[in-house]
Measured scan of single mutants.
Amino acid sequence: TETYTFDSEDQAEEFAQRAQKKGYTVEKRKENGKFKVRVE
């Protein structure tokens, strides 16, 4: 499980979609103005 942090929602969304296409489970959340994407 890895967590990635992005400054913009667009970046987080793009990353999450790519990860989902590769078959990963993706969980997105906003925390302290940053966008976190957890991938497993």
Rank of each mutant, 00 (worst) to 15 (best):
T1L: 10
T1H: 12
E2G: 14
E2L: 14
E2K: 15
E2Q: 14
E2A: 14
T3L: 08
T3V: 12
T3M: 08
T3N: 05
T3S: 07
Y4V: 04
Y4G: 01
Y4M: 04
Y4D: 01
T5A: 06
T5R: 03
T5Y: 13
T5P: 02
T5E: 13
F6K: 00
F6H: 00
D7K: 04
D7P: 04
D7N: 07
D7M: 06
S8C: 07
S8F: 10
S8Q: 08
E9F: 08
E9H: 06
D10A: 13
D10F: 09
D10T: 10
D10Y: 09
D10C: 02
Q11D: 13
Q11I: 08
Q11G: 06
Q11M: 11
Q11P: 03
Q11Y: 06
Q11V: 09
Q11F: 05
A12H: 01
A12P: 00
A12R: 01
A12L: 02
A12T: 01
E13D: 14
E13Q: 07
E13Y: 06
E13M: 07
E14S: 08
E14L: 10
E14C: 06
E14H: 07
E14Q: 10
F15D: 01
F15Y: 05
F15Q: 01
A16L: 09
A16C: 09
Q17V: 11
Q17M: 11
Q17P: 00
Q17T: 11
Q17K: 12
Q17I: 12
R18T: 11
R18Y: 13
R18D: 12
A19Y: 13
A19E: 08
A19D: 01
A19N: 05
A19T: 06
Q20R: 13
Q20L: 14
Q20G: 06
K21V: 08
K21N: 12
K21D: 13
K21A: 13
K21M: 12
K21Q: 13
K21H: 09
K21P: 01
K22F: 13
K22Y: 13
K22D: 13
G23N: 03
G23T: 01
G23M: 02
G23F: 02
Y24N: 04
Y24L: 09
T25Y: 12
V26L: 03
V26D: 01
V26I: 08
E27N: 09
E27P: 00
E27L: 09
E27V: 13
K28F: 14
K28H: 09
R29W: 15
R29Q: 10
K30T: 11
K30N: 11
E31F: 05
N32E: 10
N32H: 08
N32V: 03
N32F: 07
G33V: 02
G33W: 02
G33E: 06
G33T: 04
G33A: 04
G33Y: 03
G33N: 06
K34H: 08
K34D: 03
K34T: 07
K34M: 10
F35I: 08
F35V: 06
K36N: 09
K36L: 15
K36G: 04
V37P: 01
V37M: 01
V37N: 00
V37D: 01
R38F: 14
R38V: 15
R38K: 13
R38I: 15
V39A: 02
V39M: 04
V39H: 02
E40R: 12
E40I: 15
E40T: 15
E40S: 15
E40A: 12
